[in-house]
Design a protein around this nucleic acid. Sequence first.
DNA 1: ACATCCCCTTAGCC
DNA 2: AGGCTAAGGGGAT
Length: 299
Amino acid sequence: MEIQLDTLTTPFSLRHTLSCGQVFRWEKRGDWWWGVVQGEAVKVRQARGKLRFQASSERVDANFIAEYFRLGDDLPRILSRINKDEHIGEAIRAFRGLRIVRQDPWECLISYMCATHANIPAVRNMIFNLSRRFGRKITLDGHALYTFPKPTDLAGANLRGLRRCKLGFRAERILQTSKMIADEMFDLEALRGADYEDAKSRLMSLPGVGQKVADCVLLFSLDVLEAFPVDIWMKRIILKLYLGHFEQSFVEKISGKGSIARKDYEKISSFGRGYFGEYAGYAQEYLFHYGRSQLKGEV
DNA sequence: ACATCCCCTTAGCC
DNA sequence: AGGCTAAGGGGAT
């Protein structure tokens, strides 16, 4: 099946969207990107203005794909809203068509808990290990893929099994959080449409979920496009491109290496939301990808 | 209440 | 090649 895209009204770049670091489960093999979405194996490619896809089930139709890639977002309008200066302007020029993916909240939550103090290749490995060990095997065109485990699958696991997935110190946190979700002590879907601060603090009541993970879950899975996650890369980008928006003493304070203190996180994140506005999350993602591609080697 | 320090597993990276 | 770091969180001081 395929979706016809108009470059002007519906700009979309599959490559930028899947390689910018927001999703961990896609892999490029030849001309196609292979992934697993909502328990279905999917392969996608983009060529000559068309988005073509095949999947393990009929329920993966054009609407399913459009929902996942947020093709309904008015990207030209969003980009014009966040295009506040030359730096973000350059990021937009470089990666126009990058869209926030609408991930499953549960999978997104565990994925970004895995991303705690880990680099992207390591996170990909953890998620692949979890899926192979606790997920379900599905095939598409003879290729084997594994669905992401359900909350009950991980809640029923033991620490040793999780540690074999290379989760390290994250294993205990992920087990506890999985139990809370599986036992319906915590309802992720209930956060959809909730007030930003409220939804964030409720997420942070989960073990292993701090400000950063909460912001990522809100942005990447619960449609809170104002969320502005701050990781070590965003700190670098702020120091390089936006230091003029902060006091000298603050710039010096966060210039040292290491993770970001709780209050410093809040200062940077609220700057992002205030400066870029209601679509700050999109600005964050363009800057994140741009920063990683430009600043690599400078670090 | 607030800030700072330190530890947490593992593997990718230089 | 081995030390440092990684889409951070939590607990102690």
